[in-house]
Write a protein that binds this DNA or RNA. Structure first.
Length: 118
DNA sequence: TTTCTTACA
DNA sequence: TGTAAGGA
């Protein structure tokens, strides 16, 4: 199927589908005309990409993790041995990001509390 | 009509 | 990421 069908089947814009390809997340083949040709598997892949993006992973990590997952975007199962370790690492990264945001919020809270009507 | 690439108020 | 431009 071509990109227009993918847009309808996945709800993802053409722009984004091309971006996913640029990031190595999708590798559609090409017609002699240059038009991209997507497979049924690509539709499933897009669902996984959306699920992984929602999990806070970067496209770089997703590119490495994608070939090690099974199932659709809602219920994915890791099939490679080292994938779980990689995900634990991502979890840790997210945790530190949360800590930094919390600290930033605390700073604002302090400033707010010191002002008029604090 | 549909898709492609490149570039940006 | 959207959108516009200029082709095929």
């Amino acid at each position: 199927m071509r990109i227009g069908d993918m847009v309808r089947r996945t709800g993802v814009s053409e722009r984004l589908l091309r971006y996913y390809e640029e990031q190595g997340l999708l590798t559609p083949s090409r017609l002699p005309s240059g038009y991209r040709v997507y497979s049924e598997a690509d539709v499933v892949t897009v669902r996984r990409i959306r699920g992984l993006l929602a999990a806070g992973l970067t496209t770089a990590v997703i590119a490495r993790v994608l070939p090690c997952l099974e199932g659709d975007g809602a219920h994915m199962v890791p099939v490679c041995p080292d994938l779980v370790a990689e995900l634990r690492g991502e979890r840790a990264r997210i945790t530190s990001a949360i800590d930094e945001l919390r600290a930033a919020r605390d700073v604002l809270d302090a400033v707010i509390a010191a002002g008029p009507r604090g």
